[in-house]
């Protein structure tokens, strides 16, 4: 498993506040990776460090095995759509495509024109008057037509309405299927991530809480409900992620690689959203669990 992004003790500080601190992670190659976490977890900072827009205050980060934005060749391999999908308000859609062609030697104009045609955008329209969804699509087109190996998207759908969101993600998935690029997208909309991501990294306060294949995560997490019971009495292979108790009942969210055999529990599968919420809930003190978390030590 080679990593598209590998961070080691990575830290970034704005004046005295740490936006990202001691972050160590490895994001695998060839996946659509969802980077989730509460606001302030350091998602945007991590992506800006990965694109070279920011320089780390400490630690190291490598992207596709190179220093981020080390030179034109490194820049050409990574596409980026920033939060809110900024575009040049006074330039037209056609101008943006020209900008892409001027600044990227590997520019795929046929791809760009085709996407703009499919989106039914007026090429003479100024980008400032596009809707949020159209703007995001234009930014995505710009990032895709430079034919990157890795595409980074920072909250690409957060400000879009549900329809525009679905269209955007569909366009993204088509491009991934067509060109086989690796994608890392940050989001706090877990439902959307479930639709497109096959790998998940949950980042809380700069630390990786859990990381893994979405299917593995869903298979290894169970909700157990049954008569009230002390979680300490569970078998060794079952790690409690979240617990709640009433006078008579206990509900647990556990991580286990083995089937739950105890007949006292009613075992139900966990949705991706519940899983993520359990991990990012500050009330749940979850110890780090070594290699399965994808932490490179």
């Amino acid at each position: 498993m080679s990593a598209v992004i590998e961070a080691n003790g990575l830290g970034m500080r704005y004046r005295r506040t740490w936006a990202l601190r001691d972050c160590t992670l490895a994001i695998p190659h060839g996946r659509v990776v969802g980077l989730v976490g509460p606001n302030g977890a350091g998602k945007t900072t991590l992506l800006h460090l990965a694109t070279g827009l920011l320089a780390p205050a400490c630690g190291t980060i490598s992207v596709l095995g190179e220093h981020p934005a080390a030179g034109p060749a490194e820049l050409a391999r990574v596409g980026f759509v920033a939060q809110e999908a900024p575009v040049y308000a006074r330039m037209t859609v056609a101008d943006h495509l020209r900008l892409g062609a001027w600044l990227n030697p590997a520019w795929d104009d046929e791809l760009a024109q085709r996407r703009i045609g499919q989106l039914d955008l007026d090429t003479k329209q100024r980008a400032g008057s596009l809707s949020g969804g159209q703007r995001a699509q234009l930014a995505l087109t710009l990032a895709l037509a430079k034919r990157p190996e890795l595409l980074l998207l920072d909250e690409p759908v957060a400000s879009l309405d549900p329809l525009a969101r679905r269209e955007f993600l569909r366009g993204l998935m088509e491009a991934v299927a067509e060109h086989g690029i690796s994608v890392v997208l940050s989001s706090h909309l877990v439902a959307d991530l479930g639709r497109v991501c096959d790998y998940l990294v949950v980042l809380v306060a700069s630390r990786v809480r859990v990381a893994g294949e979405v299917s593995d995560l869903l298979a290894s997490h169970r909700r157990l409900s049954g008569p009230r019971r002390d979680p300490a009495t569970l078998p060794a292979g079952q790690q409690v992620i979240e617990e709640s108790h009433t006078v008579k009942q206990t509900v647990l969210l556990v991580r286990t690689d083995e089937p739950v055999l105890d007949p006292a529990w009613t075992v139900t599968p966990v949705s991706l959203e519940d899983l993520v919420l359990a991990y990012i809930n500050p009330a749940n003190d979850i110890p780090a669990r070594g290699p399965q978390l994808g932490v490179v030590s």
């Binding site: 800006h48 694109t51 070279g52 827009l53 934005a69 030179g71 034109p72 060749a73 820049l75 050409a76 990574v78 596409g79 980026f80 920033a82 809110e84 900024p86 575009v87 040049y88 308000a89 900008l99 892409g100 600044l103 990227n104 030697p105 590997a106 930014a139 710009l142 990032a143 430079k146």
Partner: peptide, 17 residues
């Protein structure tokens, strides 16, 4: 101001150039 620097700086042109 317009937040467009991420576009400018993530094309295949170094910031120096």
């Amino acid at each position: 101001e317009a937040g467009t620097y991420p576009i400018a700086w993530t094309q295949s042109v170094t910031r120096l150039r």
